[in-house]
Design a protein around this nucleic acid. Sequence first.
DNA 1: TCCTATT
Length: 370
Amino acid sequence: GTQEWLKLGLLNSVIISTMETQVSNGPSGTSMPNGPVISTNGATDDSKTNLIVNYLPQNMTQEEFKSLFGSIGEIESCKLVRDKITGQSLGYGFVNYVDPNDADKAINTLNGLKLQTKTIKVSYARPSSASIRDANLYVSGLPKTMSQKDMEQLFSQYGRIITSRILVDQVTAGISRGVGFIRFDKRNEAEEAIKGLNGQKPLGAAEPITVKFANNPSQKTGQALLTQLYQTAARRYTGPLHHQTQRFRLDNLLNATYGVKRFSPITIDSMTSLAGVNLTGPTGAGWCIFVYNLSPEADESVLWQLFGPFGAVTNVKVIRDFTTNKCKGFGFVTMTNYDEAAMAIASLNGYRLGDRVLQVSFKTSKQHKA
DNA sequence: TCCTATT
């Protein structure tokens, strides 16, 4: 696992133009005692052992994450943060080491590591609290000449900046697009910055800037999530694969097996006919879809959430074991319109839900070949 | 006119 990631990082060190600042949010103390720090009330102080890891590649799994950081030292706990509904990685995670020295070592050796197109950031996690959430600002209308440093200087009067970034044009290699992000330590600092800077002209600027809270990715609609899915899926099919190691071949294999033809309903039909299987067709209320590899805990709501964004869903059903009442691993969804059903199948077949890869198809009735 | 940083 770890070797693969390290290798990938070296092979795939794609240079991306980012103006990201690596802000340290670590504890200010320099001494690193051995072993967990236990306060008098018995609570563990993890400020010197708990790390947050940002900018992880989208397709990195919990296991790979643990493997990479476990190569440094004994891990007390670690978690790749994923979307509650879709199970997709949110691109960051936490690692809590047993020994503060290992946390320090992880920052020194893994911060800035290039993995695929990402440069990961490893830093001490701030203590979790509600006050640090939703502190990310979206800034637009910036003068093209304004640098990241200039922008930080402008915003720093309102609080402690955790990250800042100015988006740059991809083709002209590094020309500012006049939009960026500022993440403050505290949400109230971000609020003050909006009050103070939204609609204001920076010194010497011709136009006022817009400052607002950034869209929160964890609150994306089902539709937006699925749009993102198409895009990441499409990128995977067209991207170069020759650098991929075993683990990623598996990832691509799953996509190839379930997904290569998945944007063409015609192909779905022809493939099922070739297999000697006929679609049941629109029976009564609509098109019945078979969903396989649901978890034992799956319920109807997850099916509504997955299929609803594609169009009219008239019925969902999770098949459960009669005695345990646990899902038997599959269910059915009925959709009114063929094209919406086909799009849902094309998009959701091969889709990772939590730790599982779904198989989604029109419900079939086996028949002898003609 | 939206990069994915709080479990």
